[in-house]
Simulated scan of single mutants.
Amino acid sequence: MKKIVLTGAHGALGSVLRAPLSRMAESLVSTDILDQPKTLMPNETWSVADLGRFDQIAPLMEGAEMVVHFGAVVDEKPFEELLGPNYVGAYNVWEAAYRAGARRVVYASSIHAVGMAETWSGVDTETAHRPDTFYGLAKCFAEDMGRMYWEKRGLEAVCLRIASCTPEPQNARSLGTWLSHRDLVQLVTRSIETPVVGFTIAYGVSANARAPLSNARVGFLGYHPQDNAENYAATLLSRHTPDPTDLAQTRVGGPFAAVPLGESGMDALRAISGPAVKPDGT
């Protein structure tokens, strides 16, 4: 490819994707609201831009074939704080990509688009939206917009409902929801390389033995995760006290399902996560 655009390039996941994406195109345009890091890939350029400003986003899309949209406020906040970056920002990216003639948007959606679904309910890519927060609602909005842009304008989209993407699993919930960085890179790569995707939803989850999420319907992406959170189970389960009345434990959205609307889900998530765990359970 000639050009890929990556939004949210300074974020925890965007930072992981910069190097592999740079190897997939002649040029990588990385953008974030933050200043560029100290080093860039040889074929990477950096643009500081606000997702909520169409006039700042549109010029970045010129000549792009793929847009990997990972920019957002990544937490629950009052609706007004999410409106610009997460709602308007998604529209700006899709509309600018369409006007520029891009072929596809690969979008960092979230498990929180279906966060109120019960963990035992057999969640798959046909599960209806059940957002757990204003943050999750923004993901529903972007997914529906992505489907509309495909069906009305022919702009393809792969919406990745990312669950718990960290270097190692952090808590008992992540025994099912963990997505390793290695598997994240593979999932995004497959979302770009697959010849035709139309509008596709896939779960960002590793090959966890306890995964409550299924990608069985989207095997055509060729995503075969390599990592399994079960290797960390002994220590993670020793920290866990089951409570069948706690939404944070019984819904796929975890703590985001239990917090009041507008209040941080990340704070609640950090409260249940202990020190880093090694694969041997120590």
Rank of each mutant, 00 (worst) to 15 (best):
V197R: 10
I33A: 05
F134T: 11
Q249W: 10
N171L: 01
S121T: 03
R153W: 05
K38G: 15
H10I: 00
K139S: 10
L82G: 05
T125K: 06
T241A: 02
I33D: 01
A202F: 01
Q186L: 12
A211H: 10
G146T: 09
A211F: 07
A216P: 00
G154N: 12
L34S: 14
G122I: 06
H181N: 09
K139E: 05
I33G: 02
E118H: 12
H224K: 13
Q226L: 11
H181I: 04
G101N: 06
L237H: 02
K38Y: 13
Y203V: 04
A12D: 00
G265L: 00
Q186S: 10
E263A: 08
A248W: 09
A49W: 03
A209C: 09
S47P: 14
T245A: 12
A234L: 02
A258S: 14
P260I: 06
N171G: 05
R53Y: 11
V5K: 07
G176H: 05
E62N: 09
E76V: 04
F134M: 13
V158T: 06
G281H: 10
L213M: 10
R103C: 10
L184Y: 12
F199W: 14
V16A: 13
A49T: 04
R161E: 11
A49C: 04
S27G: 03
Q36T: 13
A138Y: 04
R210G: 00
T119G: 14
A113H: 03
I57D: 06
P85F: 14
N86F: 11
V123Q: 09
P244G: 06
I57T: 06
R173C: 03
A202I: 05
P20G: 07
L82Q: 03
Y107P: 04
R103G: 12
M61S: 04
V68F: 11
M61W: 04
T45A: 08
V218N: 08
G52V: 09
C159A: 13
G136T: 08
A108G: 09
L28R: 10
K38M: 14
N231L: 12
T282Q: 02
D124V: 01
A258F: 07
R103I: 12
S47E: 15
G219S: 08
T7F: 08
V93H: 01
A248R: 14
F134Y: 15
V188S: 10
V277P: 08
I162K: 02
V93N: 02
F199E: 05
G262K: 00
H69M: 05
F134D: 06
L6T: 02
V106R: 06
A234H: 01
D55M: 01
L261M: 11
G219E: 02
A209F: 06
G154R: 14
D75Y: 04
I201S: 08
G254Y: 13
V123T: 15
E193T: 12
S164L: 11
E76D: 03
V114H: 06
D246K: 05
M116Q: 09
T133V: 03
Y135V: 11
D267P: 00
H10N: 14
Y87S: 06
A72I: 01
V48P: 13
